[in-house]
Design a protein around this nucleic acid. Structure first.
Length: 551
RNA sequence: GGCAGCGUAGCUCAGAGGCAGAGCAGGGGCUUCAUAAGCCCUGUGUCGUGGGUUCGAAUCCCUCCGCUGCCA
């Protein structure tokens, strides 16, 4: 039995989830977690809402509500999405808990005592009217590069260039329009430069990482790590635990990654014997994130852990690339996105899980199109897998009074299929252990095709009139294969596997053993119904035009 | 502007020096248990462009074009 920590990227609680989030960071860890639980390993899968940061405070100020209200709204929406999509967190918390603040401050203090955090003075925009320092996004002005007005202190949306707020021409406060002054402000910095060589040595040893993650991280090191400010002049966030700095907060990028640890501690109710086995010794930590988050998880968080000491570094960071939508880059500001709450109003969770697994952006960007979604649902999920299950189970009901047929001697053809099923269990096992999700799904679907071929060759609808026992044997073999599919597809398609587990009259729970359960002969079965619904192709056009109608 | 990645069949994507692959779509046939589902047969692809290395390049190197990302 192993301890597997599954650390999942923390979604920003300032907007709804879209399919890019799911394909990139949320579906893969769920598949991985369900697999490991079925294998009998101890799994701790944690994440939570990222409650801090200026996008949230800005949104709150624009809406005239508190940041906490914004966070609460999306946090409960996230929880609802996880439940409906079957994302099986052991704990999905938030960075606004007292526990998280305590753990973050503990790490801050320890790094400060060890000299990995130091103070420095930096120029900062200050609004004399609002009487406060302005974080980047609170300053608007004219872009020094392209000359367009309305550029923000962190970036110009017009030309897409990142900026420093002090570079803006004609800067003004986004709240009150006053022209800000530049004042010196004292901040704390993380001494990342101290970890340069340690990190390089460590990363170069991670041969099991995906090449994109490895190369990306090494490139950062080639450029040389620079120390970064970890505090801000803002009043929403985790307070800096140093006397005289009460008005400052920890920068989100420093504090949010600590959430993996603080959530583990929260999950264990603070009991060290509960959480530490996931963070030390042979325990392995897998960090599931999108590619935009790579440096935080392969460089910054490991540096923090090295400095803090006593906790495992990430074992793997299987970062995914991005999902494009109908061939175009996903954009939340232009509303070019498929929102998960919207999806879940109209469709079941498993078809999306299937599509995104089959087309997961593991090695490069991949595309989501409604056309493809419908076709994968109707032509693969329904036609190949769902129909195999349905034709076998309805046949058993009609001709064997709904009882598992008692098998006679299994011939070479049947045995060959059973061997193929056993091999598939191994293939999917290995693929999942290595986070090769697409490969595992491909292998599972290939077995479903074999099942259909076998039925075709046996034609039980013919033989049942003349050879009841032989036909029963064929059906038993087919049901055994279906049972194997139930297990290997469970991590991907938990909802339909749960139903199939019942339809097959199997013992125990669908979540339990990663093994091939055979149906019990003569057992009475509940009446089956179709595992998946076929979708009317008319829906494609409706979805596409809804997407294109958005501004 | 600098750096990196990608560009393979109508579509979505694998493959990474040794006869170009899968699924889906399309075409032909068989079947009728099943959600008009299933099975069999069916691929003339300048592997983005142009060059180079090699006995041999989709694969390695360089140029250019296009897309994406990171950085300035």
């Amino acid at each position: 039995m192993e301890h597997i920590l599954i650390a999942v990227a923390w979604p920003y609680a300032n907007g709804p989830l879209h399919l890019g989030h799911i394909a990139g960071a949320y579906l893969p860890p769920d598949i991985f977690g369900r697999y490991h639980r079925a294998k009998g390993n101890r799994v701790l899968m944690v994440s939570g809402s990222d409650a801090h940061g200026t996008p949230i405070t800005l949104r709150a100020e624009q809406e005239g509500v508190t940041p906490a209200e914004v966070v609460d709204r999306y946090h409960s929406q996230f929880l609802d999405c996880w439940r409906k999509l079957g994302i099986s967190f052991d704990l999905f918390t938030s960075t606004s808990t007292p526990n998280h603040a305590r753990v973050s401050q503990d790490i801050f203090r320890t790094l400060l005592e060890k000299g990995y955090i130091y103070k420095n003075s930096v120029p900062q925009q200050f609004c004399s009217n609002c009487q406060r320092y302005l974080p980047d996004r609170y300053v608007e002005g004219t872009c020094p590069l392209c000359g367009s007005s309305g550029a923000r202190g962190d970036q110009c949306d017009s030309c897409g260039k990142p900026l420093n707020s002090t570079e803006l021409r004609d800067p003004h406060c986004r709240i009150c329009d006053t022209t800000p002054l530049i004042k010196e402000s004292e901040h704390f910095f993380l001494r990342l430069s101290a970890f340069q060589e340690l990190l390089r040595k460590w990363i170069e040893a991670q041969r099991h990482w995906r090449p994109n993650v490895l190369n990306f991280s090494l490139r950062y090191l080639d450029e040389g790590l620079r120390d970064r400010a970890i505090t801000r002049d803002i009043n929403w966030g985790v307070p800096v635990p140093v006397e005289g700095y009460e008005g400052k907060r920890l920068y989100v990028w420093f504090e949010a990654v600590i959430g993996y640890l603080s959530a583990s501690i929260e999950w264990a109710g603070g009991d060290e014997a509960g959480w530490r086995p996931f963070w030390s010794g042979e325990a392995r930590g897998y960090y599931f994130i999108g590619k935009d988050n790579i440096p935080f998880h392969t460089l910054i968080w490991p540096a923090m852990l090295m400095g803090y000491g006593g906790l495992n570094l990430p074992y793997n960071v299987p970062a995914n690339e991005f999902l494009t939508i109908q061939g175009r880059q996903l954009s939340t500001s232009r509303n070019w996105a498929v929102w998960l709450p919207e999806y879940l109003k109209s469709y079941d969770p498993d078809p999306l899980r299937y599509y995104l697994s089959a087309n997961m952006p593991e090695g490069g960007d991949t595309d989501f199109s409604w056309q493809q979604f419908y076709s994968r649902n109707n032509d693969e999920l329904v036609a190949t897998y769902g129909n195999l299950v349905h034709r076998v189970l309805t046949f058993v009901h009609r001709h064997y009074s709904g009882e598992v047929p008692r098998p006679g001697t299994i011939d070479a053809g049947g045995q060959a299929l059973l061997n193929k099923a056993a091999a598939t269990l191994d293939t999917v096992d290995r693929a999942l252990a290595e986070c090769h999700f697409r490969e595992g799904l491909r292998a599972a679907m290939a077995l479903a095709q074999e099942g259909n071929r076998y039925l075709e060759s046996r034609a039980p609808w013919k033989s049942v009139a003349t050879d009841r026992e032989g036909t029963g044997t064929s059906l038993y073999v087919a049901m055994s294969v279906i049972s194997c599919l139930k297990t290997v597809l469970y991590p991907y398609l938990p909802f339909s596997s749960t139903r199939l587990h019942q339809y097959l009259g199997l013992e125990g729970s669908v979540e339990d053993p990663w093994e091939w359960q055979r149906p019990t002969p003569s057992r009475g079965l509940p009446g089956p119904s179709a595992l998946f619904a076929k979708l009317d192709a008319k829906g494609i056009e409706a979805e596409v035009s809804r997407l294109e109608a958005s501004p």
